[in-house]
Amino acid sequence: MPNSRPIVAIVDDDEAVGNAIEVLMRSMGLLARAFLSGEEFLRSPELIRTGCLIVDFDMPKMNGLDLHSKLSRLGKEIPTVLITAYPSDDIRARALEAGVICYLPKPFNESDLLNCIQSALDLRKSK
């Protein structure tokens, strides 16, 4: 199948951040698609092909942790990287307890993000 490669989905209400991460992913040879909200991502046909989800915690309507939890309840276990401009120990603990594989405070460096994505894609392959 030509479209069987997993997608790295980026969900961030800051379009500039989402686009920057999408460009970085593509420069690394990965398929990537940016979304402005959790709701937009949930309606997307790319949902079933998503191998890794990078999601901002602080978004209107549905925050990143809520999106991760909703996907889990729907039976869609997508390895998730939670990013946030407002880090807190409480959110970090809740995220890791919920099964988020990486928690990255903004600004993060590219190598940390790429390591998280590689872990996510490796985890997906092993399932």
Rank of each mutant, 00 (worst) to 15 (best):
M1D: 13
N3P: 02
S4G: 06
R5D: 15
P6L: 11
I7Y: 11
I7T: 08
I7L: 13
V8H: 04
A9C: 09
I10V: 15
D13R: 00
D13N: 14
D14Q: 14
D14F: 01
V17G: 02
V17F: 09
V17Q: 09
V17E: 04
V23C: 06
L24Q: 12
M25Y: 06
M25A: 15
R26K: 14
S27I: 05
G29R: 14
L30V: 05
A32Y: 09
R33G: 01
F35W: 05
L36R: 12
L36M: 13
E39G: 09
E39A: 13
F41Y: 15
F41C: 06
F41R: 02
L42M: 11
L42Q: 13
R43K: 14
R43Q: 09
R43F: 04
S44C: 08
P45I: 07
P45V: 07
P45N: 07
I48G: 02
R49T: 04
T50F: 00
T50C: 15
T50I: 01
G51W: 08
C52S: 11
C52E: 00
C52L: 00
L53T: 01
I54P: 08
I54D: 02
I54T: 06
D56G: 10
F57H: 15
D58M: 09
D58W: 08
D58A: 12
M59K: 01
M59L: 08
M62K: 04
M62H: 08
N63H: 13
G64K: 09
G64S: 09
G64D: 07
L65G: 01
L65R: 02
D66N: 09
D66G: 07
L67S: 12
K70P: 00
K70T: 13
K70Y: 06
K70C: 01
K70Q: 14
L71H: 10
R73S: 10
K76Y: 12
K76S: 12
K76P: 00
E77D: 08
E77P: 00
I78S: 04
T80G: 13
V81F: 02
V81K: 06
I83H: 07
A85L: 04
A85K: 07
Y86E: 13
Y86A: 10
P87Y: 01
P87S: 02
D89G: 13
D90F: 04
D90P: 01
A93W: 01
R94H: 12
R94V: 06
A95Q: 02
A95G: 05
L96S: 06
L96N: 04
E97K: 15
G99K: 14
V100H: 07
Y103C: 08
Y103M: 07
L104D: 07
P105R: 10
P107T: 06
F108L: 10
F108T: 04
F108V: 03
F108R: 06
F108K: 04
E110K: 09
S111E: 15
L114D: 03
N115S: 12
N115K: 13
N115E: 10
C116I: 08
C116T: 05
I117Q: 03
A120K: 11
L121S: 08
D122N: 14
L123A: 03
L123D: 00
L123Q: 03
R124P: 00
R124N: 09
